[in-house]
């Protein structure tokens, strides 16, 4: 309850307006059967992203500022593209770009392994498998029914609600910086003291050094000591899934095959 109270007091109206505009813009952009209002939806989405951008924190040096905002913009814009495109192949490509942007943001925070693993697992394996299947569909052969988004209003509304919740959470989180000072809530404090509380750039914090020499080593030790049980359970789960997939294939084959009689064998 305490947290909610803090969050309600710290969130400002501009962020709420931005979320509302985002939901409206998304609803207009989604494929609803007519192309009317798409341009207006684009404008609304851009405006709302701009509103979010002006509330954000300036980082302590210009280079990280530029890199961070470019990657954020790429991630968000391509995420919007991924949900609003009509052709499934384009959705997949936009989603791949979202993943690349996310991986870039992970890298920016010093989580090298997570960043690279995102690309390998999601973009490299899962999405390629999607594309593999999508390629077998004719690009123009879908019925209109397949190319529409179902419940456009509901999904856009849920998205806006989700954004509001996330903004609340982000606005109410406080964390300790390297010097032990309490920092945040990030969005609301900006107007009061933009210069006195620098954002934690990845260079300052010891644990988040982008070029940490023993990044993977530390990660491995953490995973295989503290979280050993979780790793083992996840591994077992994957093994079960693998065996299950093989079992399904093998089962389908034996039951689908005609019985080879001795006569047929001889004849052949």
């Amino acid at each position: 309850m305490m947290l909610t109270a803090v969050a309600l007091s710290t969130i400002d109206k501009l962020a709420l307006v931005a979320c509302f505009l985002l939901g409206l813009g998304l609803w207009m952009l989604l494929p609803r059967g007519s192309s009317r209002g798409k341009a207006f939806g684009l404008v609304l989405t851009t405006v709302s992203l701009g509103l979010f951008a002006v509330r954000l924190w300036p980082l302590d040096d210009m280079v990280s500022d530029i890199v961070f905002y470019i990657m954020t913009a790429v991630t968000l814009v391509s995420a919007i593209g991924a949900v609003t495109m009509q052709s499934p192949v384009y959705c997949a490509i936009w989603f791949a770009l979202t993943l690349l942007g996310t991986a870039g943001l992970f890298f920016f925070q010093g989580a090298q392994f997570l960043g690279v693993a995102t690309i390998v697992v999601y973009a490299g394996a899962i999405l390629v498998t999607f594309l593999f299947v999508l390629m077998l569909c004719n690009p123009e052969g879908h019925s209109l029914y397949d190319r529409l988004s179902w419940e456009a209003g509901l999904s856009a509304g849920t998205g806006a609600l989700m954004t509001i919740l996330l903004t609340w959470t982000a606005a109410s989180v406080t964390f300790a910086d390297a010097r032990g000072n309490t920092v945040g809530p990030t969005i609301a404090v900006r107007e009061e003291a933009p210069a006195t509380i620098p954002f934690q750039s990845s260079k300052d914090a010891q644990g988040r050094n982008i070029l940490a020499a023993q990044h993977v080593e530390k990660l491995g030790i953490e995973l295989f000591t503290k979280h050993l049980l979780a790793v083992e359970v996840a591994g077992t789960l994957l093994l079960v899934a693998l065996v299950g997939a093989v079992a399904i294939v093998a089962h389908g084959r034996t039951s689908g095959m005609p019985v080879i009689t001795e006569e047929a064998r001889r004849d052949a």
């Binding site: 490509i93 392994f113 690279v116 390629v128 020499a213």
Partner: peptide, 22 residues
């Protein structure tokens, strides 16, 4: 300084698949 060099190579060679598929 990249500590995950080999996984990075893997990640990018899986991106190369996109060029072929697309």
């Amino acid at each position: 300084g990249i500590d995950v060099g080999m996984i990075y190579i893997f990640a990018l060679s899986s991106i190369a698949v996109y060029g072929v598929i697309l």
